[in-house]
Design a binder for these strands. Structure first.
Length: 120
DNA sequence: CATCTGACACTAT
DNA sequence: TATAGTGCCAGAT
């Protein structure tokens, strides 16, 4: 195997993919998106991606706690779009307890999928 | 290669 | 609750 043949996708690409995975009616945060993409502590870069990549459900990405971070009319637009999808607000923030999307864990491919807990 | 930038997160006040 | 300062890090210049 090459030294690093298995490099991960560039941050911008990985983040865009993560953002696209947020379902309609649900939301996430800059920090959570960055972490899910494999780049924790790079929340600020997520904002850049949202401003660069077109066609993303940008309105579903919020600041910590469900706060709309986009200022001005765009912020109002964001709130309007989210409410149109059925996202509920509590004051100025989105009710994250109800609408935050949980990304699947990045678990490293497991050859043996016998890992289920006997439930209960 | 050095700096600057930003739709952030977190803490202290 | 609101404001201000610090830490962060990849992209842009």
């Amino acid at each position: 195997m090459g030294p690093k043949s298995a490099s991960k996708l560039p941050p911008a690409i990985a983040m865009a993919a993560v953002i696209r995975s947020i379902p309609r009616g649900q939301v996430s945060t800059y920090g959570a998106v960055a972490e899910a993409a494999g780049y924790p502590r790079s929340a600020r870069h997520v904002a850049k991606v949202l401003n660069t990549v077109r066609g993303l459900p940008w309105q579903r990405v919020l600041g910590a706690g469900g706060r709309i971070s986009l200022p001005g009319e765009y912020g109002l637009e964001q709130r309007f779009l989210l409410e149109s999808e059925g996202v509920r607000f509590r004051g100025r923030k989105v009710d994250m307890a109800l609408s935050e999307f949980r990304f699947a864990k990045p678990k490293k491919a497991r050859k043996n999928s016998a890992r289920r807990a006997p439930s209960r």
